[in-house]
Amino acid sequence: MRTLVLLLLCGFAGLFAGPARGAPSGAYKVVVHPDNPVNELSRARLSQLFFKKSTQWDSGVTAMPVDLNDSSPVRAAFCDEVLKRSLPAVRAFWQQRIFSGRDVPPPELPSDADVLAYVRANPGAVGYVPASTPTPGLKVITLLD
């Protein structure tokens, strides 16, 4: 009986643990390193890279996708429109991959500036930032559906 009470208390206290977040939409642009020969990319191919179903560009360079952290509305929009899953569903996908020892998700960076710096520093990197963010020294690629 004490175990039951303890579990119920845990459950009640957990109500304050933070609910799942929604996914407001937002515009974004996809950026790659200027040395990357790719100028346009299909949505499906970009989704493969972010789900790590493919880990290389056609040139053979290792793809290094990078995410904004999940507090960014742009992240939610990118998940909905490119990955075709909500952010919680993407997280669940990565939980399954992590705990089955298969893979880990792309790094999550806290700001647009961090994403741009990461892409600038890695020739195989691909990231996304709000459409209004200046991206000097990086290549913005066209997303095809």
Binding site: L7, C10, G11, G14, L15, A17, G18, P19, A20, P88, R91, A92, Q95
Partner: peptide, 10 residues
């Protein structure tokens, strides 16, 4: 089930 978030469930 009550999911507080995708990482915690009762």
């Amino acid at each position: 089930n009550y999911w507080f978030n995708p990482h915690l469930v009762f």
